[in-house]
């Protein structure tokens, strides 16, 4: 494919439907994975927060999953769940766990002692204290985790093209197989753009949800 331009615009305008569908599937796979990941991580993080002894095994396990290369993890799931959306989602959810659990715990640990004592002194029950004091104060760091997990997931969705899913990754893979750079570049650039836009959107959401925490943010 020498002298082939990286993007042939007439192809793009002729295939807007296909591109839109791939983008939609990409976003869909991402949203499901992050939502499910957040639910599981919240449960595990709260467990680790309540029972400190559970923290080490939970983060260790999430760390091992996180270390396994994405293609290997997806492939290892194929015998169990086949070439399905479920296979992709289990893998994608697996990669969000470490990031989310770490940030939820860091957020909860960052709540100052005297605030907790004040809440106790006001007669809040443990549950009230968690939902009305600790979780709102942890929110900026939790949201930072959600942003990292979402951007990571958008990147990993492209890999699921190799097991027949993949949203924009499907477009990129087709471009490689057909030796047609336009498809590769449209898919890749859109997935990067999607990550940037979604990240900015989540940042705005975070600011709106935590008007008291100006300039604050999470690490890791």
């Amino acid at each position: 494919m020498p002298s082939e331009p990286l993007i042939r615009w007439p192809w793009v305008t002729a295939h807007l439907d296909e591109i839109g569908a791939a983008l939609g599937q990409h976003l869909f796979l991402t949203v499901i994975a992050v939502a499910a990941g957040l639910a599981i991580s919240a449960a595990l993080a709260l467990l680790a927060h309540r029972y400190r002894r559970a923290e080490a095994p939970i983060t260790w396990l999430a760390g091992v999953v996180y270390t396994i290369p994405s293609l290997a993890l997806f492939v290892l799931l194929i015998p169990v769940t086949g070439l399905s959306t479920l296979t992709s989602e289990i893998g994608l959810v697996g990669y969000t766990l470490l990031i989310l659990i770490r940030n939820i715990l860091a957020g909860l640990d960052g709540v100052p002692r005297d605030v907790l004592e004040a809440a106790d002194a006001m007669g809040l029950t443990r549950r009230q204290r968690l939902f009305q004091v600790e979780l709102p104060l942890a929110l900026p760091i939790v949201m930072a985790g959600i942003r990292i997990a979402t951007v990571t997931t958008i990147g990993l969705v492209t890999v699921t093209a190799l097991i027949g899913q993949g949203g924009l990754g499907q477009l990129m893979l087709a471009g490689f197989i057909n030796l047609f750079p336009t498809e590769i570049y449209v898919g890749a650039l859109l997935s990067i753009a999607l990550a940037v836009v979604v990240d900015a959107g989540l940042l705005l959401l975070q600011r709106a949800l935590t008007p008291w925490a100006r300039g604050g943010g999470g690490r890791r």
């Binding site: 990571t152 990147g155 570049y185 990550a195 990240d199």
Partner: peptide, 16 residues
């Protein structure tokens, strides 16, 4: 670095 997925990077470098 976080926004650039490895698979996308690999495929984008191939035509080049």
């Amino acid at each position: 670095g976080r926004a650039l997925p490895s698979f996308a990077l690999l495929l984008m470098l191939i035509p080049i």
